[in-house]
């Protein structure tokens, strides 16, 4: 019984750890994409606006 309880505790912890990693990674990707989007551009010259004019 003790072992089972411990495993459940660990599984819960691993699940929350995995969710935390996914949320963090998603945030990192969003920031990296945003940074790459504006790298070397005029800060007000939006790439999507330029694309829609083309």
């Amino acid at each position: 019984m003790q072992t089972e309880w411990c495993m459940t505790e660990l599984q819960q912890a691993l699940l929350i750890f995995a969710i935390g990693a996914v949320v963090t990674l998603t945030t990192v990707i969003m920031i990296a994409r945003g940074h790459a989007r504006w790298h070397g551009r005029d800060p007000y010259d939006d790439p999507s606006r330029a694309a829609s004019h083309d």
């Binding site: 411990c6 495993m7 660990l10």
Partner: peptide, 10 residues
């Protein structure tokens, strides 16, 4: 409490 609990197998 968890850290001082008996060492788990995993």
């Amino acid at each position: 409490a968890l850290a001082t609990a008996p060492a788990p197998e995993t």
